[in-house]
Structure formats: C-alpha cells, structure tokens
Design a protein around this nucleic acid. Structure first.
Lengths: 167, 167
DNA sequence: AATTGTTTTCATTTTATTTTGAAAGTTTAG
DNA sequence: CTAAACTTTCAAAATAAAATGAAAACAATT
C-alpha cells in the first residue's frame, strides 16, 4: 500500500477505534494525524488534512494537550503554534491510563464507598445488595491496581514477561 | 442510606460509567437493575422501574444476553420470560473483556497488520511510519495479552497477588 | 383455527453529541 | 498605539445515537 493511503487508513482506523472507547472521532483523528506526521503541524494543516473546522481542530488539539498526549512547539521565526504528538506508544498508553484512572476510576470508587452500607428492614436483601456492591468494589479496585501496575512497570521488560506467562 | 435509594443511585452510577466506556446508558442501567435485583425480572418490571419503553427494554436485554451477562429464566406457570444477571463480578469482568477483545482488539490487530509495510519513495518517512505502526501493534498486542491474562487467571488468587506487587 | 398473551421489529421522533464559523479575545511586531 | 496574525469561544446548525410505540410476528391455550 502507498504511504499516503496507509496514513489515511490509519487516521480512519484510529478514529473508529477511539469512538468505540468513548473518545470522540475528531480527537482520535487529530491524534492519529499527529502521531503519523514526521513534523509538528499547525492548526491550518490539521484543518486541511482532516477537513474539519478551525473550532473543531482547536478544541481537540487542546483536549489532547490536556491528556498530555500532544505538545505545543514553536518554530523559529514562525508566529503560529505547531503541535507534535508523543510517539512512544508505551508512554501514550500510560498517560491515557493515568488520565482515565483519575477521571473515572477514582470517582467511581468514591461513589461505591457511599453505597457500601445501607439501611433496610429486609436484612436478607440488605445483605445481598451490600455483597454485590462489595464485589463490584473489589473488581474496580483490581482495575485500579492494574492501572498502577501498567504505569509503574518500567517498559516492557518485567511487566511484559509476566503477561507472557498467561499467553 | 435507604436500600431503595441506594439501588437507584447505583443504577445511575452504572449508567453514567457505562456511557463513558462506550456502552449505552440504557443497557448499563438494565444491567444495573438486574445485578441488584434478588429475583429475575420481567420486561414489564424493567420498563416500569427504569421508565423506558418496551422496545428499548427488549433491545437492551437481548444485547446483554449477547454479551453473556444475562440469562433468560422461566418461572413455573408463568408464560412470559424473566431475566437474571450473572452476579459474580469477576465472571462479569471476564465476559466483558472476552467480548471486547473479540469485537474490537482482534479486528484492530488485523487492520494494523495491513499497515505494517507500505511503499514510498521517501525511505526515511516510510521507515518512520512503519515504526509507529509497529509500536502501536506491540502495544495492542500487549493489551491483548492482558485480556488473555485476565481471562485465564483463575480468580483473584494468582493474578491478584501479582498485581499487588505493583501497588 | 381463532383468541390471547408475549416478544420483536423498525420507521419515526427525541435526545445527545459533535461540528461549524463568525465574533471576540489575545499576542506580537512595527 | 494599533494593525495584523493568530487563537479561543460559543450560539446555532448538523449529525449521530438512542428511545418510542404501534404494528407485525410468534407462541401458547382453548
């Protein structure tokens, strides 16, 4: 396949995949275009290549910066801003996990804690509900441990080897 | 907190959480109500408690059955169907992972393979693109290994202990 | 084989999300 | 200071996703 065609296909692929996982299509596509671009891109260039509006490009680039997946870069003598993506995919994974943990898992654990003990005359049902919540809580905490594991495990080496045990 | 109130809060919580992860709100709420119900529920009951339409209830129950998270159950002398959710949350996690692996990760790996080698006059850029795809491929395969690990690791015991090493 | 209870389908409507683009805001340079 | 270059915002429009509900299909019962 020809390089340009492959890049387009990748942009599509990443966009679709992203939207299945709760990341909006444009954001994933902007990410994809930056990941596969050898040099930093301007907003104009992103708009042009993805055929999206200025507002859309700007919003999603900024969101990617919030996720710590993209940096601003200045080019000598150029006034406008350029953007470059983190290309080390292990690093990318760690940052996405870190962010989702912070935004989603941690609040979820908070909420579950509030549901751990309830009042009811029906002791049987009370107990059953509490068991269910407890069991979800254990699961979510395990997910949390996995995030920690992934973030701390320094590159493939150790973590990768452990995973391979299960293959 | 009172039991009924807690259940409602849980239904909300699960619904919100689900929609952040690409599972639609109703489906997550139907799941939540079944998880916290001591007995199997009929479509009518689900419709009533969640205030959703018959079509909506039916579609999402069936989808949950597809995901292998809910079973049909018949009650002696009753003509209509009742539904009960798998309550072992570790089992639930395994099944969700299994399904997402099958539906999303595996196709993604397929697509990435097609992008692994491209043609271009610009050898430098060709190589850079191939490296990027290769690096994404490694990452996705690692994710795949993690799914396998999670599914095979028999309950908390071994897997849990390994995770705790990283805490 | 007709009636009744129940489930499924799907065209339409509703709601939620995303995108647009013009205007406001900001920064830089002369 | 102020004009030009650029970035950000946000109300409105467009699009996508989900929900409705009536009708069709199906299944059990008489």
């Amino acid at each position: 396949m020809e390089l340009e065609q492959a890049k387009n296909q990748f942009i599509n692929l990443w966009g679709n995949f992203g939207s299945q996982w709760g990341i909006n299509r444009s954001m994933a596509q902007v990410h994809a275009i930056l990941i596969t671009s050898p040099n930093a891109l301007s907003t104009e260039e992103i708009m042009g290549k993805l055929q999206i509006s200025r507002g859309n490009a700007n919003t999603n680039v900024r969101e990617l910066i919030n996720w710590n997946l993209v940096y601003k870069e200045t080019i000598l003598g150029e006034r406008r801003e350029f953007f470059r993506a983190e290309k080390d995919m292990w690093e990318v994974a760690k940052r996405i996990v870190r962010e989702r943990k912070r935004r989603e898992i941690e609040p979820l654990i908070q909420h579950l804690n509030e549901l751990k003990t309830v009042e009811s005359d029906n002791l049987e049902e009370k107990k059953e509900f509490e068991n269910t919540i407890e069991s979800i809580d254990r699961l979510v905490n395990k997910l949390d441990s996995m995030s920690n594991a992934l973030m701390k495990a320094d590159e493939h080496a150790f973590f990768g080897k452990i995973l391979n045990l299960f293959k």
